[in-house]
Each structure stands twice: as C-alpha cells, then as structure tokens.
Design a protein around this nucleic acid. Structure first.
Lengths: 336, 336
DNA sequence: GAGGGCTGTCGAAGCGCTTCGACAATCTCT
DNA sequence: AGAGATTGTCGAAGCGCTTCGACAGCCCTC
C-alpha cells in the first residue's frame, strides 16, 4: 500500500504538503502541486480511509437506512437508493447501506462509532422510534418522508397531501362524483407511514370541499386481494366512476378486473394512479398519474445533508409539488 | 465522544485490556471482563471506526456494487441487496453501496483506500471490465453472476443453464413441441450479461436434445413491446403452444394479450416464467415458474466473502440448483 | 522447593493521515 | 529602504485504536 509519506518522498516535499495538495486547504505553488500530483499518479496512491477518518473525524460516508420490509414500493426504494448513491459520490461521499433490521440501534451505532458523517432515513413513520435518537445525536440527518413532528429535523418528500387533493380535483373537474381510493396494504396504515396518511388527508379534504363521495380501502397487492376489494367497493357504492390507486401492485389487477367486468377505461370509469412514471406508462392502459419523483427525492436528500455537513442550511421541510400527467385512463364521467 | 482510554480509566484497567475484552484475542479474567463491560455500558462507549480501521487495517465493511441501470429485475436486485446487508451485519460487517456509475474505478478506489475489506459485484457481464482489476487486487471478492472466465474468482449464482433446460423439459413432458422464449430487453443481451446467455444456452441445448422447436425473442417490458413481439412469434411459428418468459415486465402483458386473443392459459398455451416467487403468485394466472432465489444468492455471497476474509475457503463457483414450481399456467399441450 | 509453563495485565510503539504553529522567502506599501 | 503583509513549505503533535513483547503472579511437576 502506497502511503502519503512515500508520495512526499517521491515528490521531494514534506508529507503535510502532499496533504495540502490533496485537500486544497492551503495554497500550494503550481510547480509543487504538479510534482505532487504526478507522484500520486505514478505511484497509484489512494489515501487510506481509516487514517483520514481518524485524523479528520470525518469519514466521508453517509448512511442510508432503507426499510427491511418489501411490502411496498420496492422499485421506488431502489431508485431512491441509487439516486442517493450517485449524488453522494458527486459530492465526495460514499454510502453505507443500513437495513431497518437493526432498528434504532443502528442510529446509535453509526453515530457513536463515527462510521458515517450523517444519515438519511427512508420509510419514516409518523411517530418514528428513531427520531428521539436522531435528535440527541449531533450527526446531521435527513428524512425522506414526513413524521408527525418535524421540529429540528430536515425532511424531503413529495407533497402527498397536495397529491391527494390534485387527484380528487382532476376527477371532480371531469364530472366524477363518487370516488374510490385503492390504498396501500393495511399494514402500511397500521404502522402510520406518513405518506399514506397524508395522501388520504389530501384526498378526503378536497373531496369534502368539493362535495364528493370518497371511499378509501386499503388493499394488498395482487389479483385476489384486488378482486375482493373491488367487489366490496362496487357493492357499497355502485355509482363509483373514479378510482385513485396508490399501490403499484394493485394497478394491473384493477385494470384487468374492470375490463373483465365490462367497464371500459376511461369511458365508464376513470383511473388515476400515484406511482412511478414507469408503472404508469407500462400499464395495459396508459395511466393518468401523479409520478413519485424517486430520483429527485434521493438527490434532494443528499443535497440537504451535504449542506448541513458543510455547515450551510438548517432544518427545513422540502416538499416537492406533485404534477399530474394526463394519459389515457381518465376522462369525463359517463352521463348518469 | 467516549474513548477507549476513558473506559479503561473508568474500569481501572489499561487501554490494552479494554481492547482485549472487546476483541477476545487474549484471555481476560471474568472479574475484569465484567468490570470493563459494565464501564462500556455505563459510558455508552462505541469504538471509533476510523481508529480501528487504521490500527487493524480491517474496516469491517464490505462493498456491494449494484448496477446503475434499472432496465431489469429491480426487485431482485433490491432483495439481494437487502439480504447482503442483513447477512453482513450478522457477521459484523457493514455494507457500502456502490453504483456502477463510477465503473471499474470504484474497484480501484475501494481497494486502494482500504475502505472495504472485500467486495461483492452484481450484474456481472461475461467479459466484465472489472475483473482484471479484481484479480490484481488482493482484496477478496465474490461475484453474483458468472463471467466467461471464472479462474481465480468466487461466484454465486442460480444455475441458469439448468434453469433453461428445466423449463424446456417441463414443457416437453407435457407434449409441447414448439416453444417460444420471451427474453430480457435486447440491451441485456448486447452487453452479454451472463445469466441471460446461460439461460438461453440451457434452453437451446435441451430443445435440440429433445428435438423441439425453440424461438427466442428479446423483449422490452410493457404492453406495446410485448404485443409486437407476440405477433411476430405467432406469425413465424403459429403452432407455438409453450412460452418461457424471462422478463418480469413482460409477464403480465403476455398474459393479457393471450387472453385478449382468446388463447386460454393453460388450455391452449402453457407459460413458464423465470422470475421471483412474488411475481409468479401475484400474476393474473398463477405462474408455473422457476424462482430466482434472490435472498439465498445474497446470503451465500456474503458467506463466501466472509469465509475468504477469515482465510477459510478458496475460489469456488457456487451454483444454486433451480426448482420448478408447478402452478396454474402450464398443462398438457392441446391435441393438434 | 526450584524450574517451567500458564494466565492475566500492562506499557509502548505505531497505523497513515490532518492540522497547527513556525518560519523563510517574497511582495507591497509608504 | 524598511516595516508589514502574504505565500509556500515544513516539522511535530496527535487522532483512538490494536498488538507485541514483557512480566508478575500462580499452579504444576519432579
């Protein structure tokens, strides 16, 4: 392993000079800089991460805590994770992947050991048990998702409340009066995942304001579950003509079942999805949808975190405005 | 931040003793051990990762390189990544998430800086450009996937060749004579991803042995692409009664299209999928399938790597035997 | 009961880097 | 021309840990 000292010797300067060339924290003559850079290249030098972390108490690593469960939105999670990793690299950081398995202890361990300089938490619950730990730690953190109490925290998320409202408005404008919401799996609501509840808030609030009927039903993914859920909905509210779906794995089953029952989309019923772009365009009917901007969420989270690590910027809640894209699955409500 | 020295003082022993309590590398009297452990707990001590890495030249981190692209098998990737992370933690390692973005340089950087003790590479191509670097590095590595030349490498993968053979056999046994293979996106073959080609090998080899017709067509996911592909296949080989699908995002479109054309599954045509269990059971027809054992692959990869890090075990190719699960999508070929 | 082997503990060296203060050399004013 | 500021470089200290050799005390054994 090549060390700083060897580079220094090779370039005929002192170790500290090499260090300053690397960090740019003191000015170095062009001549010296070039000599050093040349030595670095020729020797194939890579600074030792451990030594660097020890001396500077900065690891240049950020921890990303992903949920262990895979009961929802896996592609979204993956996309976020990848966006986090690439953005982090662009800022000179590496990413440590933590699963929820360890639970809150992971926060303690990572903060305590100086393994990471900061962390990004995904899949935040309204009253997340990791938050107290996060608050008492001095390590900066950014949440992807919104807990109930955001005091002292930096959060990044799609504005799910506005998303809900937007979906309702879209259907209302087209004359739909009875709307059904196919939600996430019941478990998602039971653990009070912020985004699901906030979407519901937005949906309900807007529906009330506009005087629409709104029926919300959680739904596991898959055909069987969707069949049961749909039957119940149509039984309870036969006049339903608008659907809002917030569950990737219910989208296709819903479309298939509607087709099977002879309900044409969008002639008889309209469907609006809250899902990644890709799902919307690959579905059997191209879906009018509000996209979940996974990449942007990941990127923003890292940028917020890096800002905090650099001592810039404080606690902030960054909500991304939803955008509804009109596709083939929604249209005017049928005449009654 | 609490340090080793503070723990030592609190417990009334020397720093080295605390270190030995932690590592277990020398025997310590029960009495002393307990005092030290108590101090550690009371002070909330966490060893500093950087210092540890520097002194021991072991970071207790393994790097996981995931592909940047998301043109295939995202849920599988995610599942593997999570399995890697959890298994690694069980062995005392953390996981560093690298994307393919950096390319081969990432290997150099991680190995050179001592950031990670070893690495796991996913999405291996037959002639992967990271392999030469890997071979010249002294850091142990494990591949998930199989390159063309496995000399000096440890690899873990599903036996895709056997998987292909198994699918053909299954259909042959049920009397199907003409089989079509819906493959991954063309790009996957273009970059010579090992698993796709090996599956094809297995399919073709077995089909030849059994005297069956086999038509392979790469296919982008989604309805439109699938529609085009299917039309071409049926045009070229109208007698096709068996389908093998190796592309998650083509599964549902295929089923929908067949239904739409009045071809019943499994009465008129049989479908066998190579996909994660979840996709197979959630599809609109429960699919006879060979599961991709993502969790096991992740777990095995970590275990192989840890073994190498411990100086146990050498280079090995671990192939997981495929298992075909019979579900509702395959049956006897219709009488001609 | 002297010699040899264990056990349990300690002190010190050092891992490879960052960073602070010092200082010589050079430049910029009046 | 001399004081003062600026620039570029160096040496040394120290980050918190692991690990090696040393050694005191103990238990056996012949």
């Amino acid at each position: 392993m090549v060390t700083l000292a060897e580079v220094a010797q090779h370039a005929g300067v002192s170790a500290s000079t090499v260090s300053y060339v690397l960090s740019g924290k003191r000015s170095i003559s062009v001549n010296t800089r070039q000599r050093v850079e040349r030595s670095i290249r020729e020797l194939g030098y890579h600074p030792n991460a451990g030594a660097r972390a020890l001396a500077s108490s900065r690891s240049n690593i950020i921890a990303l805590m992903v949920p262990l469960r895979t009961d929802m939105y896996v592609p979204v999670m993956m996309e976020i994770a990848i966006a986090v990793a690439t953005t982090a690299r662009a800022h000179g950081y590496d990413v440590l992947l933590l699963t929820g398995e360890e639970g809150p202890d992971a926060v303690r361990r990572v903060a305590g050991s100086g393994l990471a300089d900061g962390m990004i938490l995904m899949d935040v619950e309204l009253d997340d048990e990791r938050l107290p730990l996060l608050r008492e730690t001095d390590r900066p953190a950014v949440l992807i998702g919104l807990p109930a109490d955001t005091a002292g925290l930096t959060c990044v998320d799609l504005d799910f409340k506005a998303t809900g409202a937007l979906c309702v408005e879209h259907l209302a404008q087209r004359g739909h009066r009875d709307i059904a919401v196919i939600g996430e799996a019941p478990a998602v609501y039971e653990r009070h995942t912020g985004f699901a509840e906030r979407t519901l808030d937005g949906l309900r609030g807007r529906a009330r304001e506009l005087g629409l009927g709104l029926l919300h039903r959680p739904c596991e993914g898959g055909y069987d579950a969707m069949a049961v859920t749909l039957a119940r909905i149509l039984d309870e509210r036969p006049g339903t003509t608008g659907f809002v779906v917030q569950n990737e794995s219910a989208v296709e089953p819903l479309l298939a079942l509607l087709r099977q029952q002879g309900r044409a989309v969008p002639e008889d019923v309209s469907v609006v999805a809250i899902c990644p772009e890709q799902v919307a365009v690959q579905a059997s009917v191209r879906l009018t949808s509000v996209a979940i901007p996974a990449q942007e969420m990941g990127r923003l989270a890292v940028e917020q975190l890096v800002a905090k690590l650099d001592g810039r910027g404080g606690d902030e809640v960054v909500l991304i405005a939803p955008e509804l894209t009109l596709r083939a699955s929604s249209g005017p409500a049928p005449a009654r």
